[in-house]
C-alpha cells in the first residue's frame, strides 16, 4: 500500500512530463496529419536551454534558495520562448514546403531533423551527461506506516502544479479563443478554412509554437526532476510521449494528458513491481498493442473505412 501510493506520486509526476510532450505530437498530428518525429529532440533542446539559463543565473547570483527558485522560473520562460523559436524555424524550413506533397517526405524530413538536432547538441555542447547540483531536495512527509515513509518532494509538487496551471491556460486558448477555433477549423479541412480567410500557414506555425512551448515546460521539469540531461535524451521520452498521444487518442488534447499519465504510471509501476531493465520494452509494447488493437485510442474518434 505504502509503496503503491509512493509509486502513484512518482508516476503522476513522470506522467505530467510525458503528457506535456504528448500534446505537441497530438496537436501537430491533428492539424497536418504528420508525426513530428523531431518533437522529442525539441524537448531535449529545451532542457539544454533551461540548463544554460539556470547555470548562468546561479553562476552570477549564487545558489541560495530564493535564487534557485527564481532561476528556475526564468529558465522556464526563456526556454519556452527559445524552444518555440526552434519549433517555428523547423516547421518553416523542413516541413512547410513538404506539406501536401508526397506523404513520406515530411516524415523523412522530420527524421532527418531529429538526427540533425540531436547531433547539433552533441557537437555544440558535447556528448557527456550534463548534471546540475541537487536542488529542492526537501520533501513533505505524507504519512508513515510499517516503517515506510510516503513522501512528496517539492519538485514533484512544483511539477504537478505548473503542469496543471499551464494546461488550464492552454485549454482556454484552444477552446475559447479565435486562434483555437482557427486551429480546429484547419484540422477539419485546411483548404476550406483558407477559403474562409483563415491564415492556414500561420495557424499551423502557431500550433508548432504552442506544442514546443509545452515541451519546453516538460524539458525544464525533466531537468529539475532528474537533475541531468544528455544530447540523446530526446528519443526515448519522445517515443513514450508519442505512445501517450496514441494511447489517449491522437488528435485529442485531454487524451494526450490522460495517455501521458497512464504511460507515466505504467512505467513507474512496471519498474517498481517487475523489472527496471524492461521498462522501455514495456513502453514500446504498449505502443504496439494500442496501435494494433485500438488505433483510435481511449478518447479518439474511431475511423470508418471509406469504400
Amino acid at each position: 500500500m505504502e509503496v503503491f501510493v509512493q509509486q502513484l506520486i512518482n508516476g503522476v509526476t513522470l506522467g505530467a512530463v510525458y503528457g506535456l510532450i504528448a500534446i505537441g505530437y497530438t496537436m501537430v498530428f491533428g492539424i497536418i496529419g504528420m508525426v513530428n518525429f523531431a518533437h522529442g529532440d525539441v524537448f531535449m533542446i529545451s532542457a539544454f536551454i533551461s540548463l544554460i539559463v539556470f547555470m548562468a543565473i546561479t553562476a552570477v547570483a549564487g545558489f541560495s534558495g530564493g535564487v534557485v527558485f527564481l532561476a528556475l522560473l526564468v529558465a522556464l520562460v526563456v526556454s519556452m520562448v527559445i524552444t518555440a523559436l526552434y519549433s517555428w524555424t523547423i516547421e518553416r524550413i523542413a516541413y512547410r514546403k513538404l506539406r501536401g506533397s508526397f506523404r513520406l517526405a515530411p516524415l523523412i524530413s522530420a527524421i532527418g531533423m531529429s538526427i540533425l538536432l540531436m547531433n547539433f547538441v552533441q557537437v555544440a555542447q558535447g556528448a557527456r551527461n550534463k548534471p546540475i547540483p541537487p536542488i529542492m531536495r526537501d520533501t513533505i512527509n505524507l504519512f508513515e506506516r510499517n516503517g515506510f515513509q510516503v513522501a512528496i518532494s517539492y519538485k514533484q509538487v512544483m511539477i504537478i502544479a505548473v503542469t496543471a496551471i499551464l494546461l488550464a491556460i492552454f485549454w482556454y486558448v484552444v477552446q475559447k479563443t479565435p486562434l483555437g477555433r482557427a486551429q480546429r477549423a484547419c484540422e477539419q479541412d485546411a483548404k476550406m478554412a483558407a477559403l474562409l480567410g483563415i491564415n492556414v500557414d500561420r495557424t499551423i506555425a502557431v500550433t508548432f509554437v504552442m506544442g514546443a512551448a509545452l515541451a519546453a515546460v516538460a524539458g525544464t521539469m525533466f531537468l529539475t526532476y532528474y537533475g541531468v540531461v544528455v544530447f540523446s535524451d530526446g528519443f526515448v521520452p519522445g517515443v513514450k510521449a508519442f505512445t501517450a498521444a496514441v494511447l489517449g487518442g491522437i488528435g485529442s488534447l485531454p487524451g494526450a494528458v490522460l495517455g501521458g499519465m497512464l504511460i507515466g504510471l505504467i512505467e513507474t509501476f512496471w519498474s517498481a513491481y517487475f523489472s527496471i531493465d524492461y521498462k522501455d520494452v514495456a513502453a514500446f509494447s504498449i505502443l504496439a498493442i494500442v496501435l494494433i488493437f485500438m488505433p483510435q485510442g481511449l478518447l479518439g474518434k474511431p475511423e470508418v473505412e471509406k469504400v
Partner: peptide, 21 residues
C-alpha cells in the same frame, strides 16, 4: 568524424526539400 551524423541529418532534410519523391 564528429560532424558525420550532423551532416547526415542536414542532408536528409535538404534532399527531401529538393526532391521529395
Amino acid at each position: 568524424a564528429q560532424y558525420r551524423m550532423l551532416i547526415f541529418g542536414i542532408c536528409m532534410v535538404l534532399m527531401m526539400l529538393w526532391k521529395p519523391r
